[in-house]
Computed example of a mutant assay.
Amino acid sequence: MSSSCIEDLSIHDNQWYRIVHEMLGMADIEINGSRPFDIKVNNPDFFKRVLQEGSLGLGESYMDGWWECERLDTFFHKVLHAGLERKLPHHLKDTLRIAAARLTNLQSKKRAWIVGKEHYDLGNDLFAKMLDPYMQYSCAYWKDAATLEQAQEAKLKLICDKLQLQPGMTLLDIGCGWGGLSEYAARHYGVSVTGVTISAEQQKMAQKRCEGLDVIILLQDYRDLNQQYDRIVSVGMFEHVGPKNYPTYFSVVERNLKPDGLFLLHTIGSNRTNLSVDPWIDKYIFPNGCLPSVKHIAQASEGHFVMEDWHNIGADYDRTLMSWYERFQQAWPELSERYSERFERMFSYYLNACAGSFRARDIQLWQVLFSPRGVEGGIRVTR
């Protein structure tokens, strides 16, 4: 239904319209306005759906074509900067989901494999076209970089330098993805790497990528690891661990790290300590995920490690996500042979919403460096 049809339905007399109009006005966003971040509404039921269902209704109605926005990233930046997400109603399902997270372990060993099957196993073709040659599906480091390839390689170097890798060392890569970091560390630093993933598709590509290198890629849960390493790294995996498993996670890392070792945790982080997860992201992108807070990490690591360094590069994730979105759009004509138009809208919404969130500094990206007993004399950490 076109915007002109909406006018014919006298939607300005609709109470739902008036509420949404007022809320969006707080973020300087107009309904059917002319600016790139204004929204174009195609279905008059959009307003009621968003107010009744919150974030889930906003995302699903976009997937259904009920509304459009030329610059979704700017839309979300403005919405989050104005704090509108806190004004949306909490749907009963969201309340029940949070209650379930408190009572049950949504990231148990059995459930931990869900995200691997539903997201990371979407297809290597999709991610290969969207990501850089190292297939890094995590925040790049743009300090001195001009391209995504440069920024992701800079991120890999930053991690390896922070870990002070030396030839002959053993490195455990928890949540190794498609093996890019494992390959980079083995090839450029001469270390022996064991990578662990819960995605069968990732394991296949990682094994192929690392052929001929001193790298082993395992398909298993991190809780089953029981071998000591000189260094441990975990990039973009802690978001799937869940608060109920944080103590176990740090116990596992401590068990597998030599007394004089180093551990680097690279994770998206929340500004607030709670169990709230965006319901649309939980349903369509990362099932059972939960973003840790500073408090979560500090409390769970206490008694296991000395925190040597904490580095926030969250602002760099905005540029990373927009680079992914640009590549996704460029590859869509070819990808459309396998994926539906609804999937294209879903994935575009996801990338832009996340970019807007990082731009608004609503969420962060932390690299935290730990040692079991504290490094004598301290560490001069690479930046």
Rank of each mutant, 00 (worst) to 15 (best):
192 S>D: 09
82 A>K: 05
249 Y>F: 15
257 L>M: 08
79 V>M: 10
301 S>L: 03
308 E>L: 13
90 H>P: 00
240 H>V: 05
304 H>W: 04
121 D>E: 06
314 G>T: 09
272 R>T: 13
210 C>E: 04
379 I>D: 01
340 S>D: 05
69 C>E: 01
58 L>S: 09
3 S>V: 14
176 C>P: 02
305 F>Y: 06
181 L>W: 00
86 R>H: 11
16 W>K: 04
310 W>C: 15
315 A>Q: 11
209 R>W: 01
322 M>P: 00
222 Y>V: 02
24 L>E: 08
295 K>W: 05
267 T>P: 09
269 G>N: 04
351 L>D: 06
338 R>T: 14
262 L>Q: 09
305 F>A: 10
43 N>H: 15
67 W>M: 04
116 G>T: 03
336 S>E: 14
151 A>R: 07
36 P>L: 01
314 G>H: 05
203 Q>I: 00
90 H>S: 12
60 E>D: 12
287 P>R: 02
358 F>V: 06
127 F>V: 03
100 A>T: 11
84 L>K: 06
144 D>C: 00
177 G>L: 04
224 D>T: 11
266 H>P: 07
170 T>F: 00
157 K>C: 03
338 R>H: 14
70 E>A: 10
240 H>T: 07
230 D>C: 05
312 N>D: 15
80 L>W: 09
60 E>S: 05
202 Q>V: 06
154 A>I: 01
58 L>M: 14
87 K>W: 07
206 A>W: 00
34 S>W: 02
256 N>W: 10
331 A>P: 10
242 G>F: 04
308 E>I: 14
257 L>G: 08
139 C>S: 14
257 L>R: 13
277 V>M: 09
129 K>Y: 01
63 M>T: 04
218 L>V: 00
51 L>T: 06
244 K>N: 14
376 E>F: 02
169 M>Y: 07
33 G>A: 07
190 G>H: 08
284 Y>N: 07
336 S>Y: 00
7 E>T: 12
305 F>V: 06
232 I>T: 09
369 L>D: 10
54 G>K: 04
43 N>K: 13
247 P>Q: 07
226 N>D: 15
102 R>T: 09
159 I>D: 10
310 W>A: 12
159 I>S: 12
264 L>M: 08
19 I>E: 12
351 L>A: 04
267 T>Q: 03
108 S>L: 10
173 D>R: 03
61 S>G: 03
373 R>A: 12
197 T>A: 02
139 C>K: 05
72 L>E: 01
80 L>R: 11
149 E>P: 00
150 Q>E: 15
146 A>S: 11
5 C>A: 10
282 D>F: 02
216 I>V: 13
252 V>D: 01
